[in-house]
Amino acid sequence: MPARIDIAFRLNGVGKRASVAPETSALEMLREVIGLTGTKYGCGEGECGACTILVDGVTINACLMFAADCDGRDVMTIEGVNATPRGEALRRAFVEHGAVQCGFCTPGIMVQAWHLLESNPHADQATIQRGIEGNLCRCTGYKKIIEAVAAAEAVERGQTPVEQSREVQRG
Protein backbone atom coordinates (compact mmCIF):
# COMPACT_ATOMS: atom_id res chain seq x y z
CA MET A 1 0.00 0.00 0.00
CA PRO A 2 1.62 3.25 -1.06
CA ALA A 3 2.08 5.74 1.72
CA ARG A 4 -0.36 8.60 2.23
CA ILE A 5 0.60 11.63 4.21
CA ASP A 6 -1.88 13.71 6.13
CA ILE A 7 -0.89 17.33 6.12
CA ALA A 8 -2.32 20.53 7.54
CA PHE A 9 -1.44 23.97 6.30
CA ARG A 10 -2.89 27.39 5.68
CA LEU A 11 -4.25 27.93 2.20
CA ASN A 12 -5.16 31.48 1.28
CA GLY A 13 -5.57 32.31 4.93
CA VAL A 14 -7.78 29.36 5.82
CA GLY A 15 -6.72 26.17 7.58
CA LYS A 16 -6.67 23.19 5.25
CA ARG A 17 -6.15 19.47 5.63
CA ALA A 18 -5.24 17.11 2.84
CA SER A 19 -4.09 13.56 2.34
CA VAL A 20 -1.49 13.17 -0.38
CA ALA A 21 0.86 10.60 -1.82
CA PRO A 22 4.53 11.37 -1.14
CA GLU A 23 5.41 11.89 -4.78
CA THR A 24 2.52 14.28 -5.41
CA SER A 25 3.54 17.82 -6.27
CA ALA A 26 1.98 20.85 -4.66
CA LEU A 27 0.65 21.72 -8.11
CA GLU A 28 -1.19 18.41 -8.47
CA MET A 29 -2.56 18.75 -4.96
CA LEU A 30 -3.87 22.25 -5.56
CA ARG A 31 -5.41 21.44 -8.92
CA GLU A 32 -6.55 17.85 -8.66
CA VAL A 33 -7.08 17.26 -4.93
CA ILE A 34 -8.22 20.67 -3.72
CA GLY A 35 -9.67 21.94 -6.97
CA LEU A 36 -8.03 25.36 -7.16
CA THR A 37 -7.32 25.56 -10.87
CA GLY A 38 -5.95 29.10 -11.09
CA THR A 39 -2.45 27.67 -10.68
CA LYS A 40 -1.47 26.26 -14.07
CA TYR A 41 0.64 23.40 -15.36
CA GLY A 42 2.95 24.72 -18.05
CA CYS A 43 6.01 22.49 -17.97
CA GLY A 44 6.36 20.56 -14.71
CA GLU A 45 10.04 21.44 -14.55
CA GLY A 46 10.17 24.90 -13.01
CA GLU A 47 11.00 26.53 -16.31
CA CYS A 48 7.83 28.46 -17.14
CA GLY A 49 6.43 29.88 -13.90
CA ALA A 50 2.78 29.17 -14.76
CA CYS A 51 2.40 27.38 -11.41
CA THR A 52 3.93 30.12 -9.28
CA ILE A 53 2.53 30.18 -5.74
CA LEU A 54 3.59 31.77 -2.47
CA VAL A 55 4.87 29.59 0.35
CA ASP A 56 5.71 31.32 3.60
CA GLY A 57 5.78 34.59 1.75
CA VAL A 58 8.11 33.70 -1.11
CA THR A 59 7.27 32.45 -4.58
CA ILE A 60 8.12 28.99 -5.77
CA ASN A 61 7.14 26.75 -8.66
CA ALA A 62 4.40 24.52 -7.29
CA CYS A 63 5.34 21.80 -9.78
CA LEU A 64 8.70 21.37 -8.05
CA MET A 65 7.42 21.27 -4.50
CA PHE A 66 6.38 18.05 -2.86
CA ALA A 67 2.84 18.51 -1.61
CA ALA A 68 3.82 16.93 1.69
CA ASP A 69 6.24 19.81 2.19
CA CYS A 70 3.26 22.17 2.50
CA ASP A 71 2.63 20.73 5.96
CA GLY A 72 2.59 23.49 8.53
CA ARG A 73 3.27 26.19 6.01
CA ASP A 74 1.40 29.19 4.71
CA VAL A 75 0.41 28.77 1.07
CA MET A 76 -1.15 31.46 -1.09
CA THR A 77 -2.32 30.94 -4.65
CA ILE A 78 -3.70 33.30 -7.28
CA GLU A 79 -7.09 32.82 -5.66
CA GLY A 80 -5.68 34.27 -2.44
CA VAL A 81 -3.67 36.97 -4.15
CA ASN A 82 -6.87 38.16 -5.82
CA ALA A 83 -8.42 38.95 -2.50
CA THR A 84 -5.65 41.32 -1.42
CA PRO A 85 -5.52 45.05 -2.20
CA ARG A 86 -2.23 44.55 -4.04
CA GLY A 87 -3.75 41.68 -6.02
CA GLU A 88 -6.66 43.90 -6.95
CA ALA A 89 -4.36 46.71 -8.05
CA LEU A 90 -2.36 44.27 -10.14
CA ARG A 91 -5.42 42.73 -11.72
CA ARG A 92 -6.78 46.12 -12.64
CA ALA A 93 -3.43 47.15 -14.08
CA PHE A 94 -3.12 43.92 -16.07
CA VAL A 95 -6.57 44.48 -17.56
CA GLU A 96 -6.11 48.18 -18.28
CA HIS A 97 -2.64 47.79 -19.77
CA GLY A 98 -3.46 44.88 -22.04
CA ALA A 99 -1.13 42.49 -20.24
CA VAL A 100 -3.43 39.53 -20.84
CA GLN A 101 -3.85 37.65 -24.10
CA CYS A 102 -4.45 33.92 -23.93
CA GLY A 103 -4.12 34.33 -20.19
CA PHE A 104 -2.54 31.00 -19.41
CA CYS A 105 0.65 32.47 -17.97
CA THR A 106 -1.19 35.33 -16.31
CA PRO A 107 -2.04 33.89 -12.87
CA GLY A 108 1.57 32.80 -12.36
CA ILE A 109 2.84 36.21 -13.39
CA MET A 110 0.30 37.91 -11.15
CA VAL A 111 1.56 35.93 -8.17
CA GLN A 112 5.19 36.59 -9.06
CA ALA A 113 4.48 40.30 -9.56
CA TRP A 114 2.67 40.39 -6.24
CA HIS A 115 5.73 38.95 -4.54
CA LEU A 116 8.03 41.28 -6.44
CA LEU A 117 6.14 44.35 -5.23
CA GLU A 118 5.87 42.92 -1.73
CA SER A 119 9.62 42.50 -1.45
CA ASN A 120 10.58 45.47 -3.60
CA PRO A 121 7.92 48.17 -3.47
CA HIS A 122 10.02 50.54 -5.56
CA ALA A 123 10.82 48.14 -8.35
CA ASP A 124 12.03 49.94 -11.47
CA GLN A 125 11.59 48.58 -14.95
CA ALA A 126 14.80 46.54 -14.98
CA THR A 127 13.93 45.03 -11.60
CA ILE A 128 10.48 44.10 -12.87
CA GLN A 129 12.01 42.46 -15.94
CA ARG A 130 14.40 40.45 -13.83
CA GLY A 131 11.65 39.74 -11.31
CA ILE A 132 9.51 37.93 -13.88
CA GLU A 133 12.37 36.26 -15.75
CA GLY A 134 11.12 32.89 -14.52
CA ASN A 135 7.71 33.34 -16.13
CA LEU A 136 7.30 32.56 -19.81
CA CYS A 137 4.65 34.29 -21.89
CA ARG A 138 4.15 33.35 -25.54
CA CYS A 139 1.55 35.95 -26.48
CA THR A 140 2.34 39.42 -25.23
CA GLY A 141 6.06 39.94 -25.69
CA TYR A 142 6.10 40.94 -21.99
CA LYS A 143 6.05 44.68 -22.68
CA LYS A 144 2.52 45.25 -21.49
CA ILE A 145 3.05 42.96 -18.52
CA ILE A 146 6.04 45.01 -17.44
CA GLU A 147 4.04 48.21 -17.92
CA ALA A 148 1.17 46.77 -15.90
CA VAL A 149 3.39 45.81 -12.98
CA ALA A 150 4.99 49.25 -13.07
CA ALA A 151 1.55 50.85 -13.11
CA ALA A 152 0.39 48.79 -10.14
CA GLU A 153 3.55 49.80 -8.33
CA ALA A 154 2.86 53.45 -9.10
CA VAL A 155 -0.67 53.09 -7.73
CA GLU A 156 0.71 51.71 -4.51
CA ARG A 157 2.95 54.71 -4.19
CA GLY A 158 -0.11 56.84 -4.84
CA GLN A 159 1.45 58.46 -7.87
CA THR A 160 -0.95 57.86 -10.66
CA PRO A 161 -4.24 56.25 -9.85
CA VAL A 162 -5.11 53.50 -12.28
CA GLU A 163 -7.99 54.77 -14.33
CA GLN A 164 -11.18 52.98 -13.59
CA SER A 165 -12.11 51.05 -16.65
CA ARG A 166 -14.63 53.10 -18.52
CA GLU A 167 -16.21 49.93 -19.70
CA VAL A 168 -17.83 47.63 -17.24
CA GLN A 169 -16.23 44.27 -17.66
CA ARG A 170 -18.30 41.26 -18.38
CA GLY A 171 -18.41 38.39 -15.94
Binding site: T37, G38, R91, V100, G103, P107, E167, Q169
Partner: peptide
Protein backbone atom coordinates in the same frame (compact mmCIF):
# COMPACT_ATOMS: atom_id res chain seq x y z
CA UNK B 1 -10.15 48.96 -24.97
CA UNK B 2 -9.29 46.34 -22.35
CA UNK B 3 -10.08 42.78 -23.37
CA UNK B 4 -13.41 41.51 -22.13
CA UNK B 5 -11.90 38.24 -20.94
CA UNK B 6 -8.97 39.83 -19.13
CA UNK B 7 -10.43 40.19 -15.61
CA UNK B 8 -11.30 36.50 -15.45
CA UNK B 9 -7.96 35.48 -16.87
CA UNK B 10 -5.97 37.73 -14.56
CA UNK B 11 -7.73 36.29 -11.54
CA UNK B 12 -7.23 32.66 -12.52
CA UNK B 13 -10.96 32.08 -12.91
CA UNK B 14 -10.88 31.15 -16.59
CA UNK B 15 -11.43 27.44 -17.11
CA UNK B 16 -9.16 26.06 -19.78
CA UNK B 17 -9.55 22.52 -20.99
CA UNK B 18 -7.04 21.41 -18.36
CA UNK B 19 -9.32 22.76 -15.66
Amino acid sequence: IPKMDAPDKASGRTRYIHD
